[in-house]
Structures are given as structure tokens and as C-alpha cells.
Design a protein around this nucleic acid. Structure first.
Lengths: 112, 112
DNA sequence: TCTATATTCAACCCTATGGTTGAACATCAA
DNA sequence: TTGATGTTCAACCATAGGGTTGAATATAGA
């Protein structure tokens, strides 16, 4: 079972567009804090805080190499979040099925 | 494409354990605000606020029937969140593959 | 050693959020 | 009509969150 505190941190981390963009960038490889901060019109320290939130959620790990901190994606914790969501997959499929049934019924009506 | 404001609201809504529990409850059927609030040691108005957050994210809809408000799960918006996460699925699988490879290599070593 | 670079830390500001309480509103039932 | 029930609203409080700035730390390079 996924601890729910962990889900708290993960979903909270993902709720910010800056952080989602950083993760997307990290899916392309490792980057220093500076490189990750650059695309955003935001102070360096601000970006650093976002990274801290990502680390707290376990989504990013950091290897300090000299004066630069290399960040790396750790997608693993997302698994729990995805599983949590997947529980509801049937529900939106069910709704889609309903919709489809309705449309089909509509078709039938037209055909008569 | 999923608007990212929507992802903001969805992930933010899911970041709270009370709200996740309410959604879980709603997956079992429709419930009034009072019924949803009952399990939590929290004021009625408090629970009502959580429901408002869920509605804002589009995850809950409400049908007012007399003085009771019947709430219903609308899982649909979760689809976008799940898709967003699924993009990273390969990454944690890749990590698992790495781990497996390492363990296998370890096995090889022992066998010699 | 001196200086420039990469990063964090601490202090602060403002707004959002989770929670409370008490009053208001709407509706059902007597 | 009156009273009980289900719910929201408004005001408030405390804490967290996103952002800033300026100083501090650590390291690389001249």
C-alpha cells in the first residue's frame, strides 16, 4: 500500500505547473539546478524551492558534483499516484459507455 | 490536450487525504454532504469546503434535492491526470529494468 | 590567494488553504 | 406557523506556499 502522506506530497508536488515542467525537462536527462531554473522568469532561489518540493515528494534526486547539483528524475513514486487514479478508470469509462449507448440509441431513432 | 490549469486543480484536489477519502466514498454511490462529512472529525462547514474544492476540480457534481445536496463522482477529469502520469511510466519501468539487470548480473557473479 | 560561479539559507511579503464558529437560508414535517 | 434539519456563507485564525531579496557557503579557476 502506498502511504497516504506520500500521496499527499506527490499530488501536491504535481499541482504546480512550474514543477511539472521541471519534471518534463528531467525526463530528457540530468540537469543542474541552474539549467532547470533558466526557462522560468523566476529567481534562482524560487526555482530552488520548487526543486526542494520535488525532492520532498521523492520525484527528484540530487548528486552534488563540485559546486553544481545534478538533478535526476525518479519517477518511481508516481507509480503509487497512477495506481490510485487507476482505481477510478472504470468510472470514467462507465460514463463514456453511457454516452456511447445514448448516441447509439440516438442513431437507432434516426434510422427509423 | 488537457489544460494545465485543470491539472493544477485536479492534482491540488487530490493532494488532501480527506478529499481522497470523499472520492473513494463517492465511488460507492451518491451521498449527501452530511453523509460525506460524517466520517471526519471536522465541522460540517469544513467538509463542505473540501467538497467545494472537489467541485472546482470538476471531480464532483451536485444535485440539489430539497434541502439535501446529493453529490456524485465525476471521474472524467482524472483521465487527464492519469495520462499525464502515464508519460512517466516508462521511466519507472526503466529503473526497475536496471535493478533487475543488476540483480541478474549479481546472480551471474555468484554462479561463477 | 582572489574572483567568479553555483547553490542554499534566512528573512520577509502576500495570498491561499484548512480549519473553526455563529448566523443565515431553505425545506420538510408537525 | 413553528421547529428541526441540511447546507452555505462570512468572518476569523493559523499555517503553508510561491515569490522576492540579500547574505552566506562551497568550489573552480586564474
Amino acid at each position: 500500500m502506498v502511504e497516504h502522506q506520500q500521496l499527499d506530497a506527490i499530488f501536491a508536488a504535481l499541482a504546480d505547473p512550474t514543477r511539472r515542467a521541471m519534471l518534463r525537462q528531467l525526463s530528457r536527462g540530468e540537469f543542474s539546478v541552474g539549467e532547470l531554473a533558466a526557462p522560468f522568469s523566476m529567481s534562482f532561489a524560487g526555482a530552488s524551492k520548487h526543486l526542494k518540493a520535488l525532492e520532498k515528494a521523492g520525484l527528484v534526486t540530487r548528486a552534488i558534483q563540485g559546486r553544481t547539483h545534478l538533478c535526476r528524475l525518479n519517477a518511481q513514486p508516481m507509480h503509487g499516484a497512477l495506481e490510485w487514479l487507476r482505481y477510478y478508470e472504470n468510472f470514467w469509462n462507465a460514463r463514456l459507455d453511457d454516452l456511447e449507448r445514448e448516441l447509439t440509441a440516438d442513431d437507432e431513432r434516426k434510422r427509423r
